[in-house]
Amino acid sequence: MTVVAERSPSAGPNPQPKPDIDPERKTRGELVTFGVVVAAPLIAIAAAVPFAWGWGLGWSDVLIAVVFYVVSGLGVTVGLHRHFTHGSFKAKRPLRIALGIAGSLSLEMSVLDWVATHRKHHKFSDKEGDPHSPWRFGSGFRALSKGLLYAHMGWLFEAERTNREKYAPDLVKDPDVQKLHAWFPVLAITSVALPAVLGGLLTWSLWGAVTGFFWGSLVRIGLLHHVTWSINSICHVFGEEDFEVRDKSRNVWWLAIPSFGESWHNLHHSDPTCARHGVLKGQIDLSAGLIRWFEKAGWASDVRWPNPERLAARRVERPTAV
């Protein structure tokens, strides 16, 4: 006989499902900050060529910009994306914290907000509820053009915030992630200011600080943002479909190097927890290479490498030429 325990009258009503949208909306100050973060690097990128052509690019600027781009970029792809969002591998605590710091230096979002937003994207990918689908307004030329702009950066200016409790409950309970979230403004300011400090020290001049800020902060942040946003926009409209998916995610080869392998986006949506996105011949995935290095060093474990059987089962059959 099965005994069913009665619910105590004092236990209260059944818990309600958490809403997709966090009751705490973005403030006007946050939206203005988003505007500055988006506009200033964009203007800097437009000014980069004439600035470099004249007198504004030295060896220290290249070094600072490249190092900060690689560190913050891999912080996004390996840290925020493959580790924190999808659990493609487990990381020892020092590495986990370092990846969280590196990802925060991108000025995209805090670890907590980045993960919550991206998990929601996967749940509703290219359907109603997706935070940044380019198919939001339809499939006609004008609708898709509008959708591409929205998916690229327009969605950042929505006042609604993805519910962290619903989409990242594991990270909400993680004390290290909570500290990284609280310290995000400090890390963002550090990411903007440190290139100028390093430029001044390396050249021992005020002009070196100015050019260090221009290339290592403004141009670097702008390029990284637009590469990341291109995964949301371009990689959901253009490119090749090598694996079966329920959305419009595609592979875009020419973004593979600057995105550290993230633009092999079709396989990622077919097998989201896989640690390698570029699984076919010739598909360079620098993020997966770094994860492999972490694994060999003993800093990462339980890495979810591609499974040949799963890949074969999901591979799209292409018609053969007659």
Rank of each mutant, 00 (worst) to 15 (best):
A159H: 00
V316C: 11
Q16L: 12
S72G: 09
D302A: 15
V279H: 11
V172N: 07
R310A: 14
F260P: 04
V172C: 11
M1R: 13
F137T: 13
V32C: 10
T2D: 07
P258R: 07
L42R: 03
R220Y: 04
K18I: 02
E108V: 09
G282W: 10
P9R: 10
E240C: 12
A196W: 07
I43P: 01
V76R: 00
D176C: 08
A52K: 02
L218N: 07
I284V: 14
L290D: 05
I234N: 00
I45V: 13
M1E: 14
G100Y: 07
L31F: 00
T190L: 15
W293C: 12
V316N: 05
G147K: 04
D170H: 12
D302I: 10
A98K: 13
G261T: 09
R310G: 10
H181G: 07
R292L: 12
L156V: 10
L149V: 14
I231C: 03
F213V: 02
I231Y: 05
V197W: 04
G12P: 09
W305R: 10
V245A: 09
H225Q: 06
S301F: 03
V322G: 00
R164G: 05
V66Y: 06
N232W: 14
S110A: 11
T320P: 00
S270C: 14
T117G: 09
I101N: 09
P195N: 11
L202A: 10
P308H: 07
A39M: 15
S10L: 15
S230D: 05
A288I: 01
V32Q: 02
E309V: 02
I221M: 05
N266W: 05
D113G: 06
K92L: 11
F34R: 08
D130K: 01
S263F: 05
R142Y: 13
S205K: 02
T228F: 06
F89D: 07
E158G: 00
P308E: 14
K26I: 05
G212K: 02
A275F: 05
L171K: 04
G12E: 11
G154N: 05
S72Q: 07
K296P: 01
G222T: 01
F214A: 02
N307R: 06
S8F: 08
G58L: 10
L80D: 03
A288F: 12
V197I: 15
G29S: 14
A288D: 01
K127F: 10
V210K: 05
H122I: 03
A143I: 02
A40M: 07
H236N: 09
E262M: 14
I21N: 14
I45D: 02
P23S: 13
A300V: 04
H269A: 02
L202K: 08
P41R: 11
D285K: 11
F294V: 01
N251Y: 03
G216A: 02
V36T: 02
S60W: 15
S191P: 04
G289T: 04
V192T: 13
H181A: 03
V38P: 00
W293E: 06
V66E: 01
V237K: 06
H83V: 01
V115P: 00
S139L: 02
V197M: 03
G103C: 13
V237G: 08
T273P: 06
F214Y: 09
I231V: 15
A47L: 15
A209W: 00
F214W: 09
A188L: 12
D126E: 04
S249V: 14
N163S: 15
A159L: 04
P41Y: 00
L194C: 06
V36K: 00
E240L: 15
A91L: 10
F137S: 11
W253N: 04
D61C: 08
A98M: 12
